[in-house]
Design a protein around this nucleic acid. Sequence first.
DNA 1: GTGAAAGCGCTAACAG
DNA 2: CTGTTAGCGCTTTCAC
Lengths: 340, 340
Amino acid sequence: MRSAALRPTVGEVARAAGVSPSTVSRVLNGSPRVSPATREAIEAAISELGYEPNNAARSLVGGRTHTVGLVVSEPHERVFGDPFLAAIVRGVSREVMRARLQCAVLMANDAVDREKVERFVTQGHVDGVILVSLHEGDRLPDVLTAAGVPAVLSGRPMGLRRPVTYVDADSRGGAALATRHLIGLGRQRIATITGPLEMPAGTDRFDGYCDALRDADRPVTRSLVAEGDFTEHSGAVQMGRLLERHPDLDAVFVASDAMAIGALHALSRAGRRVSDDVAVVGFDDVPTARFTNPPLTTVRQPFDDMAVALAQRLVAQLDAPDAVVDHVVFPTELVVRASA
Amino acid sequence: MRSAALRPTVGEVARAAGVSPSTVSRVLNGSPRVSPATREAIEAAISELGYEPNNAARSLVGGRTHTVGLVVSEPHERVFGDPFLAAIVRGVSREVMRARLQCAVLMANDAVDREKVERFVTQGHVDGVILVSLHEGDRLPDVLTAAGVPAVLSGRPMGLRRPVTYVDADSRGGAALATRHLIGLGRQRIATITGPLEMPAGTDRFDGYCDALRDADRPVTRSLVAEGDFTEHSGAVQMGRLLERHPDLDAVFVASDAMAIGALHALSRAGRRVSDDVAVVGFDDVPTARFTNPPLTTVRQPFDDMAVALAQRLVAQLDAPDAVVDHVVFPTELVVRASA
DNA sequence: GTGAAAGCGCTAACAG
DNA sequence: CTGTTAGCGCTTTCAC
């Protein structure tokens, strides 16, 4: 059993290569001031001994922890976000590891955790932070920027006092795509179930819906718009309301998959045939829509790409602390399925 | 901007409290050899200055990294495992944080990553490791135990050379529950679509199915058993085969949700009415079954509890390195829905 | 019960 | 180009 205690150190590598520790360190850090010969000798010694630098020591002297925090501010009710979370965790941790950093996941479900996380990240335990599924009013972004901790957000934030770099999907464009698709199917009375209108994801998707209608010289009818809260339940409820107000509606763009599922149920409960009778398009916050029956046409977001972008932006900021704040918006696409 | 550089150190806390650094350290580490008065003074100083110990320094001297690795050996094809992953990541990272440790997520999708991860965890970057969604033939568990790195697995492993602590759900019991439920519904020809029979999750669930039939003095009919590979596609294919061989079957226990979805599609394609005609029970590796239409009765695994158990076992092993290897098996339950 | 001193493994000046 | 020196923040003997 080769325990951590007997790991080789720079000193040993140095001795094996017949040089001093500093030179080894230089090689380790890619300094150009090392002769090819020595470098080779050192590299040989390194792989010979199976040397791996000690992160703790390195951090202690360098002041950098070599770890980035992935803060998931998932309010518990949004259980639905899980697969999204999984995609992000996977992509981010991969990319972070590629940058030879480690990725610490920090869950902040309730106020207590949030407090802990806030401490943790502002007290120098991480070099930077990636924030996902942040909800409005979360003060973490501001706290971080105030403390000078590099941060990157997933999703355009609302009401921040200071600008922050973020990565988002083109919700608005996607919603327009979806609505245009319904128009293209020849639908006349296209309703929508929006998300909460005080959330960017809510307003953006509603705006996209309006864009498409406007482009087609159609009016946005207030009574064809129902505001949900992204949950399956609200989808069912709002679909029911819409059907009451407009028994004649023939299509609906639903701003989240969860709500779309609810809407499907409400429709079948009302004896309406999905697709033929009422065309439905969802918006995949989560890749679960593929499990619905009938299959659901949805707006797809490139989660994996977004995860990679998140990690890369952060790494870039770590290397250049005074880099400009910027925003990346990924295109969305419509995945058409039999049903709509 | 209060940067990491100006964080208070033990020295400063000591000065503020009028003692020596060593005493501060003793308080920090809960040593009993400190007078109540000094302790109080020091604690006051600590919260006064907002002191937080520097992890790197602490690790350097203590030889412990205070971080546990959460290795996700997710082979890419099993995308549907995502929500499971999310539940585990959430639960584990929470619990780990509670133990005042940090949790580094390590994705090992391909061979290259796996190599990196193996290095990382065996070279002392973590104090212990939690392994999830390990596939058979993965050598990591053996490598870890050989290197003396504490490890805990999720799911009973197969073919390990050394015993390892693991946390699992009672697949077999759950499968029996499901099958018994179908028997209770008065079904006569109960088929099953199993998982790969060289995987524990595959055999366990098949065994549970057999248990229930045997208990009811029913034979296990070979032609009513089809082996799938846990994917939605295989579920559809195997359901089709079963229907061909046994047009008269009136129930099916499907060993995974993904396959159950496939089976539902195959059934409706064949014009069979789910529930009335053919009762279906799934097994939730993932909590997506709630999205099916009609809703699916499923065997539910307590993912959150399992995550907590995983973390706790590992932490226990860290504190007592020579703790006994043991296994925890969580009960599963049947969530009955309208359809079956 | 408390302080002084040494050192964990590494890097960053500074010499040479 | 390379070696020497000092020290990051903390814990831990060892004295007192």
